[in-house]
Amino acid sequence: MTENTHTTTDNTTESGENFITSEGLRALLHRLHAAGPGAWEHDPTAAELMAFTAEKYAPLARKHGLDPWEAASAAFDVMRTTAARTAVDPWAVVTHAVRITCVFEERAQGLLCSVHQARRPHVSAFHDPERFSDRDNPLTDYHPAFQVTGDAPTTHDEGEGSSLSAHACTLAGSAVEDAIALFALLGWPPVTARAGVEHVCGALTKTGTRQATYEALRRDKHARALLDIPRASWTVLLKALLGNPHPAYAATTAGRGVLLRLLIGESLSVLLRDDDLILAISLAAPRASSGHRGGDEP
């Protein structure tokens, strides 16, 4: 639908030029072109023409959220072209060009880009950017770009996941048993060794990190009393299983601890060749019955 951009005001200038009609506009454009550079700037009829143009295209500019003088500026660019001067209907050429410019000016403002970019089909095809908070319902709830659809896991995937989980459980269980065997071989009562190692592994499962487990258990007098392990033996047990928490030992075997070393592939025979570890565990081995701790308590 074509906008009604005509006015009924008689704009015949003092020089007798009437640029409202197509013939009058064509004659004026030819005269301004022939006058050379500076004619549009100093000619009073040109000033009247631009004022008339701003009024003429004001409704079209407001329709697209623009200032009337932005439409007049677009008309000025077209009027200086050969196409407008030689057209059968110069006003039709100008109106069509202004309409297109207003459309893409609006698109450029919405797309946050230049008018030159907005004129390109692959750019103008996009919708205007929106904030997530602009809608009552979050965009992520309904827009397909934020929807994740995936194939249901196949029987093979489920079987593989179950196999990996079972392997991890087996590896962890084997590491616990090897740790218990290590302490038993180095003079710890088997019952005490099993109870202490299993208690540390249970706490490690809850806290998730060796450092946090060590900090929680080293102050746990209740657990130590329940397991009937002297303080010195308890400290050695924690450091041996979880590793020395001091940052200086982080990259060493003492910092990794027995449980981690077993999980990353070291065998019980390899651990038994670690002289520092063997000496520390052996010297800290509690007596078969440590019910009387004497001066062991803090």
Rank of each mutant, 00 (worst) to 15 (best):
R85E: 09
R85M: 10
T86Y: 01
A87M: 12
V88C: 02
V88D: 15
V88M: 05
V88K: 11
D89F: 00
D89Q: 12
D89H: 14
D89W: 01
D89P: 01
P90I: 03
P90N: 10
W91P: 07
W91Q: 07
A92R: 11
A92Q: 14
A92C: 13
V93P: 06
V93T: 15
V94K: 05
T95K: 05
H96Q: 14
H96A: 15
A97V: 07
V98G: 10
V98N: 06
V98R: 09
R99M: 01
R99H: 12
R99L: 02
I100C: 05
I100M: 03
T101W: 03
T101P: 00
T101G: 03
C102D: 06
C102M: 13
V103C: 01
E105V: 08
E105W: 12
E106H: 15
E106L: 02
E106A: 15
E106T: 12
R107D: 01
A108C: 10
A108K: 02
Q109Y: 06
Q109A: 14
L112F: 06
L112A: 09
C113G: 10
C113T: 15
C113F: 00
S114C: 03
V115Y: 07
V115E: 11
H116G: 03
H116P: 01
Q117V: 03
A118D: 06
A118E: 10
A118V: 12
R120N: 02
R120W: 00
P121M: 01
P121A: 12
H122V: 02
H122K: 00
V123E: 09
S124V: 10
S124Y: 03
A125M: 04
A125S: 06
A125Y: 01
A125T: 10
F126I: 05
F126E: 10
F126Y: 15
H127R: 13
H127W: 06
H127E: 11
H127T: 14
D128Q: 11
D128S: 08
P129D: 08
E130H: 14
R131P: 01
F132S: 14
F132A: 15
F132K: 10
S133W: 13
S133T: 15
D134M: 09
D134G: 13
D134W: 08
R135C: 10
N137P: 01
N137H: 02
P138N: 07
P138L: 11
P138T: 09
L139F: 04
L139A: 07
T140S: 12
T140Q: 05
T140H: 04
Y142K: 07
H143I: 03
H143G: 03
P144Y: 05
P144I: 04
